[in-house]
Design a protein around this nucleic acid. Sequence first.
DNA 1: ATGAAAGCGCTAACAC
DNA 2: GTGTTAGCGCTTTCAT
Lengths: 328, 328
Amino acid sequence: MNMAQRRTTIKDVAEAAGVGVATVSRVLSGGSASAETRERVLAAAARLDYRPSALGRNLRQQRSGGIGLLVPDITDSFYARLTDGVLSCARSYGEPVTIGVTGDDPEQEAELIGTLIEQSMDRVIAVPSGDGETWAPALRAGLNVVFADRQVRDDVPGVVADDRAGVRTAVEYLVGLGHRKIAFLARHGQSQRVAAFTDTLASLGVPVDPELVVLARASRDSAYAAAAGLLQHRADLTAVLAGGNMLGEATVLAARELHVRIPRDVSLIMFDDVPWAELCSPPLTVIAQPAQDVGYRAAELVLRQGRRPRTVTLPTELIVRASCGPRR
Amino acid sequence: MNMAQRRTTIKDVAEAAGVGVATVSRVLSGGSASAETRERVLAAAARLDYRPSALGRNLRQQRSGGIGLLVPDITDSFYARLTDGVLSCARSYGEPVTIGVTGDDPEQEAELIGTLIEQSMDRVIAVPSGDGETWAPALRAGLNVVFADRQVRDDVPGVVADDRAGVRTAVEYLVGLGHRKIAFLARHGQSQRVAAFTDTLASLGVPVDPELVVLARASRDSAYAAAAGLLQHRADLTAVLAGGNMLGEATVLAARELHVRIPRDVSLIMFDDVPWAELCSPPLTVIAQPAQDVGYRAAELVLRQGRRPRTVTLPTELIVRASCGPRR
DNA sequence: ATGAAAGCGCTAACAC
DNA sequence: GTGTTAGCGCTTTCAT
């Protein structure tokens, strides 16, 4: 008994249909052929259950189809939803998606880019880590890159949520509630959001305390440390804006640990709406971001090679639940 | 200016080093060569920044490296963590991972399997949908498959959490608290867990009410409908065992909607520990599953072609928090 | 409209 | 130990 019989190739189909391999290739990729020939080829292909090998095609075309996707952490609901959007779009084009997690670390990112190049993947969607320096060689090599969620260099198209507007809305809401000592818990690299934060405060005539913006790395531990530190050392603050769902989670946890009541002692707004925000006690007021759309649009951009807009910005939305109250 | 200059090939390296291409190939893949030759080749490769093309190698070897991963829903924290485990193991082997989401639908699954075969991916990790029938052709074609989280056919190695033990522990805990009318909210296809549920009940001398096991499909909507239906129509039940984090989430939501208090009116245990279980009000008692490990081990299994155990079973753990109380 | 043939980059079989 | 060469499956000229 022969274990794995040889795979059906284009040659088999050509023989079965009594035509040359070139004709089979043309018919299958929608080229010109007489109706009768087309019929015969299609019939033979179907009969033999022929599936063209991506390997042959890729080598010939000097590029593997499919798209590469680099995210900081697939375990983070935001990036999982973004990924889902990419997959959903890619599927409709029949394109496979190769995924890698960077841990928000430029070094790992560089390594993964190397792998993608080795695979001759020429289309990649990435949530870039660090400044965009890592991407210079890849871009020079002709890689077709689209950034998602973060825009770190202006020679690459990108799809982002309108976090400036999101931050502004949130801060205005908080200030409207009477808050003055508002902290911003952000991830390293979210300079856009930090700028929006201080700008909005300034425009509302609220003094900006630089010590009230604290930066964390993209891990649960780092997020918790930052949140706990903030809550402990700054007993005077009355509101926190968390720059992501992991930072929000950490804040709730730390608050509980330190017996800081939300929203009685401090109000909390979290970036990114996640299913558990509603389950939380209290239900969290959030700035919702269209994570799935960000991914979907990024995939569209990278697949449609056509006109490439600089940056697509998608709207965010403040969803008021129960984690904010008037200044105590 | 020439846009994308030709990529460096093995031939370039061979010329630069003054050797044949075969020698370059051998040196780079650790074959035998004289120390001096090796040196020259390595130097030339480094100087030219040569990266072997996976395309050429794949075609030659009639298989693309890398591993395919099929999960029902990347948005579900459990599968995201499982994926993370796979990626983490794959990375240490330098293997790229191609991911697809099946939506728990055998048809989509079959389509994705087709894509993988087209890519000549011969190593696949999958959370199988439906019965394992979809996999018959792929297995016949010689695909190297490892199942994760679910074991639907015994001719495929698999890595699963010990959900029988998990269910047993949970039910014993609930019965110990005095509960008799316990519902099991499960996903279609979780027959293992359902069997464990009824078995344990029977072994404890608690009458089994078939109407108290209700099945949902793998979507938020379906989960919510099932949970709400259960809570509405069976006012006599005192405890619910939710067969997954989405079912747990739905139960909490439905309970809140229907003014059913947890744990005062009904106790709740959820399969799968997720970060928000602790944030929830009340914090949820859960059966923790080693999602990340399941993925990691599955990847090890599919990468180490060696001896292939039938099924690896990983332990679960009951984590008691505050969502269970004595029978009201 | 169609077939013959070249060749993508690599590895492995074989010859030396 | 090292070079030469065939050939993986496909697409794409180039003839016909």
